[in-house]
């Protein structure tokens, strides 16, 4: 399968702390890749290297290469803003802007120069439909996004990310702040979205990884231990540490 992103010998240091060690990984197109591993093993850190959100952290040093469609995103000629448009992100805590629902979704397209009202309307509707939120909010587009429930806010954040038509969507424990029903809705949504997008998600819930992902990657102490087809990893892991983790013997 075609690899959208290729990570080669990636190392990351927070000051003196070696947070990611020699990571090699390919992320195939139009699949769901799940990252699992105990808290503090570097899942979020790794995810954030994929759209250079770590650039915002002072004192970060990154070595190795991350390629998107064959181009090194840490190369000198990379436009970070364009990169982040192509690799979108949804955060653990829903973080809608304190603006109307419409303005939240239109924020990204407006950044990238779309002013035309009818085009914006189309984009907003399409993105909200894509995040299966349209039916719930189509009559309240002018209302503040903060008046939505947590689950709705998170789907709004997904819609906001979809509005800039990313190729890859990164989700960092996007359901951990949500109730089971909202979680199921978002899982369903992820299965739907992978028809068009490549999705990388961090999750603490191994059942979730098993339910929605095609490939699962297990991290431990900043190292990538195992990257496998999800079914294979959960039924027949190669590495003993993976087995210990998924059978609940530690972590």
């Amino acid at each position: 399968m075609n690899q959208v992103m290729e990570i080669d010998r990636l190392n990351l240091h927070y000051g003196d702390f070696h947070a990611l060690k020699e990571i090699n990984l390919g992320i195939p197109e139009k699949t769901v890749t799940a990252f699992i591993g105990p808290s503090g093993c570097g899942k979020s850190t790794f995810l954030r290297t994929l759209n250079r959100m770590n650039d915002l952290v002072p004192g970060v040093q990154i070595g190795g290469s991350v390629k998107l469609d064959g181009q090194d995103i840490y190369g000198a000629d990379t436009d970070v803003e364009v990169l982040r448009k192509r690799v979108g992100m949804v955060f653990q805590q829903p973080n809608p802007f304190p603006k109307s629902i419409f303005d939240n979704v239109a924020y990204g397209p407006r950044l990238h120069g779309i002013r035309d009202k009818s085009r914006l309307n189309d984009i907003v509707e399409r993105s909200l439909r894509g995040a299966s939120l349209w039916e719930e909010v189509k009559d309240l587009l002018g209302k503040s996004a903060l008046s939505l429930s947590g689950g709705q806010q998170q789907r709004l954040c997904i819609a906001r990310a979809l509005a800039v038509e990313p190729e890859v969507l990164l989700m960092d424990e996007a359901t951990s702040a949500l109730d089971p029903i909202s979680t199921l809705k978002i899982e369903e949504l992820v299965r739907e979205l992978k028809k068009e997008y490549t999705i990388v998600m961090v999750t603490h819930n191994m059942h979730q990884a098993a339910r929605v992902s095609d490939r699962t990657v297990f991290f431990l102490n900043g190292e990538l231990v195992e990257a496998e087809e999800t079914e294979k990893l959960f039924s027949n892991p190669t590495d003993a540490r993976t087995e210990d983790y998924i059978t609940g013997r530690f972590g």
Partner: peptide, 12 residues
């Protein structure tokens, strides 16, 4: 999250 949300959409 406010700032991160904005940067993640490709804002300068």
């Amino acid at each position: 999250g406010l700032k991160e949300g904005s940067y993640a959409l490709g804002a300068t």
